[in-house]
C-alpha cells in the first residue's frame, strides 16, 4: 500500500528538483513611467547588476507590479500624493533652527544643485568609516552644524526632508558603491537578505527573488527594490521610509525585527540598493 505512494512521492520530488518551485514571472510590459505628459521618463527595467551573478536577469521597478490606478497616480506630480511632502520638505529646508541660527539652505543653498545625486549613491561610507544613510547625514548636520535636535528617523519631518532630497536625484540611476570600505557592510546586508527569519522561516530572497510576479494572496510580489523610496503608501496614507518597510517585511515572517535606524538595517539598505543599481531614482513613488 505505501509503496506506490512512496513512488509517487519520489516522482513528485524528482519533478520538484527538475523544476524547482521558483516561479519568477517577468512583468507583462516594461513601459517607462511617463510623468507630467513626458517631462520626465523613468525606465522601469534594467539589466541586473553583475554582482547578482545571474540571480536575476533583469531588475524591475516595483511600479510595474502595482494596479493601474496606483500606477497612474505616479504619472502626474499633481496626482502623486507624495509630492505635498516634498513641498513640506522644502519649507523644512529653509527653516532656521538650533543654536547656530542656520537652516539647511544657509550652507547648502539651492537644494537642486547641492543634493543632486546624493540619494542615488547613498547609503555610503562616511569619512570616519561608518555606513550612513541619508537620514544620518541630515541628523549629523542638524546636531553638529546647526546645534539643533536630531529628527526622529521615522518621523514626518525627516521623511519630508528625505523626500525632498530624493527628488533631486529623480531619473538618475541608483549607483551605490559596494567595494572598498563598503564591502564588509554589503556582505553583512547580503547575508541578511538570504537569511530565513522568524517562525515562517522566510528570507527576502524567498519572496522578492524567487517569486516576484507571483501572488501571496492579494499581494503581487515585486523584486522589493528601493529606488522608489521614500514611497507614498496608500495603505498608510503617508510616506514610508526604507527601514520601516524592512521592519514590516521581517515582522510579517513572525520574527523579531531590527530597529529602524539600526546598523543592521543600514547594511541591508546598502545591499538592497545595490540590487537596484541601474534603476532610476523615482523621487517619491506611489505604492499601495
Amino acid at each position: 500500500m505505501t509503496i506506490p505512494f512512496r513512488r509517487a512521492a519520489l516522482a513528485a520530488m524528482a519533478c520538484a528538483l527538475a523544476l524547482p518551485a521558483l516561479a519568477e514571472t517577468a512583468p507583462e510590459s516594461t513601459d517607462p513611467i511617463v510623468i507630467n505628459g513626458g517631462e520626465v521618463e523613468l525606465q522601469t527595467a534594467a539589466p541586473a547588476p553583475e554582482h547578482l551573478d545571474g540571480a536575476l536577469d533583469e531588475i524591475y521597478s516595483g511600479w510595474l507590479f502595482r494596479d493601474p490606478d496606483t500606477q497612474t497616480m505616479q504619472t502626474d506630480d499633481f496626482e502623486n500624493p507624495g509630492m505635498i511632502f516634498v513641498d513640506q520638505g522644502m519649507d523644512e529646508w529653509n527653516m532656521v533652527e538650533g543654536e547656530a541660527g542656520k537652516s539647511c539652505a544657509s550652507c547648502h543653498e539651492d537644494v537642486s544643485e547641492s543634493m543632486k545625486g546624493v540619494r542615488a549613491t547613498t547609503p555610503k561610507v562616511n569619512k570616519d568609516g561608518a555606513l550612513w544613510s541619508v537620514e544620518d547625514y541630515v541628523n549629523d548636520c542638524r546636531t553638529s552644524r546647526m546645534q539643533a535636535e536630531a529628527l526622529d528617523w521615522n518621523g514626518d519631518r525627516m521623511k519630508n526632508l528625505t523626500a525632498l532630497i530624493s527628488m533631486q536625484s529623480r531619473g538618475m540611476p541608483m549607483d551605490v558603491a559596494i567595494d572598498g570600505a563598503a564591502q564588509p557592510f554589503w556582505e553583512q546586508g547580503k547575508e541578511m537578505y538570504y537569511t530565513r527569519y522568524g517562525q515562517l522561516e522566510l528570507a527576502c530572497s524567498n519572496c522578492h527573488e524567487d517569486h516576484y510576479g507571483d501572488w501571496i494572496r492579494a499581494d503581487h510580489l515585486s523584486q522589493g527594490q528601493t529606488n522608489g523610496f521614500p514611497v507614498y503608501r496608500l495603505k498608510d496614507a503617508g510616506l514610508v521610509s526604507q527601514h520601516n518597510r524592512f521592519r514590516g517585511c521581517i515582522r510579517d515572517t513572525r520574527a523579531e525585527t531590527f530597529p529602524i535606524g539600526s546598523d543592521e538595517f543600514r547594511a541591508l539598505e546598502l545591499y538592497v540598493a545595490s540590487r537596484g543599481n541601474g534603476l532610476p531614482v523615482e523621487g517619491v513613488s506611489v505604492r499601495h
Binding site: 527569519y197 522568524g198 517562525q199 522561516e201 515582522r251 513572525r254 520574527a255 523579531e256 525585527t257
Partner: peptide, 14 residues
C-alpha cells in the same frame, strides 16, 4: 530552531 523567532506578528522577540 528559528533565526530571530518573534512573538507572533508583533515584531518583538519570542
Amino acid at each position: 530552531g528559528y533565526v530571530r523567532p518573534g512573538d507572533a506578528f508583533t515584531g518583538k522577540a519570542g
